[in-house]
């Protein structure tokens, strides 16, 4: 019965004091958050960190959510922003980090995909994705993996549809050249 409640119903219940409503909402979006973050970051640990961050933002900000966008795009917007921020932070850290190799080993060893064949395919595309600029990667992931329309992506990223299509073309072209 609770599974069929709409996002706005759950939000109303959460505002009224139902913590369980938040749990249901979080479970509804957790996989989308995780896989988007995973494709942006390229590893499980960073994706997991972003999931926890996004849930915290949702928890703190849901009570003031004004329904100007759908919960769906709002969650993606938070996830995208957090992913880009972590990419920037990792880039800065890698300039100064001494234990870089150790951290990278830990990151690559931790994974939730047990099927080796699947894992190899995912890691292959991830390696290529990590080589394209973050903003192009963002559009490519939202379009191809999250299967969003350009209008939805425009709402999430704040960029025009024309710019997004251009980003998408460049990302696709770069991936093709790498393969």
């Amino acid at each position: 019965m609770t599974e069929t409640k709409s996002d706005s119903q759950l939000i109303q219940e959460f505002i009224s004091g139902s913590d369980n409503a938040f749990n249901i909402l979080a479970k509804r979006y957790q996989q989308k958050i995780y896989w988007h973050a995973r494709r942006m970051m390229g590893n499980h640990l960073d994706a997991d960190e972003i999931v926890q961050q996004v849930l915290l933002v949702m928890y703190n900000k849901l009570k003031t959510f004004n329904f100007q966008s759908s919960v769906y795009t709002w969650v993606y917007r938070i996830t995208s922003t957090r992913s880009l921020n972590l990419i920037r932070k990792n880039k800065l850290t890698s300039l100064f980090a001494i234990e870089d190799k150790e951290k990278e080993t830990i990151k690559s060893d931790s994974d939730i995909i047990s099927d080796l064949e699947k894992r190899e395919k995912i890691e292959k595309i991830q390696r290529y994705l990590l080589k394209i600029p973050p903003k192009q990667r963002e559009v490519f992931v939202l379009r191809n993996f999250d299967e969003l329309s350009y209008e939805e992506i425009s709402e999430i990223t704040g960029r025009s549809v024309g710019a997004l299509k251009a980003n998408y073309f460049h990302a696709f072209n770069k991936l093709k050249e790498m393969m």
Partner: peptide
């Protein structure tokens, strides 16, 4: 050449993943 990219994307679209991990996300958050 471009089709190759498309095929790689299709293969990586449904990754699955450990169910226990997803079950534990919200409790860990709490």
């Amino acid at each position: 050449d471009f089709q190759q990219v498309n095929e790689l994307i299709s293969e990586a679209k449904t990754p699955g993943g450990d169910k226990d991990y997803f079950i534990n996300i919200v409790p860990r958050f709490r």
